[in-house]
Design a protein around this nucleic acid. Sequence first.
RNA 1: GGGCCUGUAGCUCAGCUGGCAGAGCAUCGGACUUUUAAUCCGCGGGUCGCGGGUUCGAGCCCCGCCGGGCCCA
Length: 511
Amino acid sequence: MSDHTAPDTTAYEEEVFEQKQVRLDKRAKLNDLGGLGGGAYPVEVPVTATIPAVRERWEHLTETPDSASGETVGIAGRVVFQRNTGKLCFASLQSGDGTRIQVMISLAGVGEDSLAQYKELVDLGDHLFVRGEVISSRRGELSVMVEEWRIAAKALAPLPNLHSELSEETRVRQRYLDLIVREQARVNVLTRAKTMASLRSTFAEQGFVEVETPMLQTMHGGASARPFVTHSNAFDTELYLRIAPELFLKRAAVGGLERVFEINRNFRNEGADSTHSPEFAMLEAYQAYTDYHGIADLTQTLIQNAALAANAGTEREGSHTVLWADGTLFDLGGEWDRISMYGTLSEAVGREITPSTSVEELQTLADEQGVEVRLPNHGKLVEELWEHFVKDGLTRPTFVMDFPVETSPLTRHHRSIPGVVEKWDLYVRGFELATGYSELVDPVVQRERFVEQAAQAAKGDDEAMRVDEEFLRALEHGMPPSGGMGMGMDRLLMALTGLGIRETILFPLVK
RNA sequence: GGGCCUGUAGCUCAGCUGGCAGAGCAUCGGACUUUUAAUCCGCGGGUCGCGGGUUCGAGCCCCGCCGGGCCCA
């Protein structure tokens, strides 16, 4: 064992604390706390009850001010308010869920020395343990009359101002502060957790198996996106962070996992803005012996159950109508419409648009309406026109079915309508929440598509896929006819809560 | 990629036409046994995002860079 010199923490601390008087003062208190049992960071404190439990059990005391329960509890929480007077001090302790309770430290209760030490050493933001009787104050506030107190964990950095909102940037960069001071931040975390649990529960009810497939891949595929590249020292090779789990989940399907799903992170090396994050949680699911209609049924059930879960314990218990952050009520219930892209576009423009409508005719239509299109081909034009004429009119969750072949080159062709693929996008209030397919399982056709993609890549398209021989070999062993679906988890949370993407992610990537 | 807004004390923000760097809360010292953002007295606290320029003088005007937000593509 090599001997190592102790790191020179003193110099570092001097530097850190030097400029910040607040921290300097608090550090001085650390030394004082060293003289007390346990110091500033005791390994444990003798808690006998949680703050919410104490509140629930003795809430009735608030109806009779200045009364005593006769029972003693030991509780701990963060000091979020302090009102110190000469011989009687008040503090509010907050537990992790935001529940608060008042504690009272009096000369009569703890004695002169302990009271003086309390006033000297305990600051806003510290974790404090107290033991004492549960009482109500003269004003009727549920309180613990302290007989003994201890620092549970000293805070060196000061708590932010509790009476004004944190700025957007501080919320994101120091989410722990956001969680301490803002109820909605705590609710958001719980809503996300409840949503995830609900999805897994719905999948379990329907006989799906959850798997985890590689995030580090020797070849990226399953979507059109630019990947992050990294390097493996052990293999001395480049590896890609996955842009989608699709090609591995389909291998699982070949192996006999007839109902399989994964909820995990994807990474796309592209722009980050208020609706796009470079890393994002994605759900993908594959179900054998169904098609894009069956997988749409599944998707609707998953989201409606998630809405129920988000409403559990609220006044909307049992309802599919969710409450958004801006106060809007949004109904996710009922049977969702399934509309045809060509059909609704034709209706909207008052003339028949089909997969065989010419590029010229579509371009004229686009020009007339001032719709700008960069890459004029039939599919691109149809999608742009559809978005322009139809999309914004959708108020309820809607599956938009049957897309042009050109814009979905990797997708299975429609069984009866030429020029169209068996694909849907699920739109919820203007954005694409999920996408589903009758999966392409023909290894010969799949190979052709890969070869076309590889040609695009050779021409410099760094979003195009390469020929994945290992995946093709799997497909050649036969994948059952299947429906597949992908859904962004952050977007699902946005649909359930009306929040921006940075609020749905606990720690969004920031520079 | 384009346009607009923004960065000042630990936190949230003012700062006029270019003229000594400000407030509330927090911190520090003092008083107070029923406070609810307690009150009262007193004291501190700044790389005005960074770099350049104009000017007698720049938080403010100009240029570049960095961070954040909104809209558009």
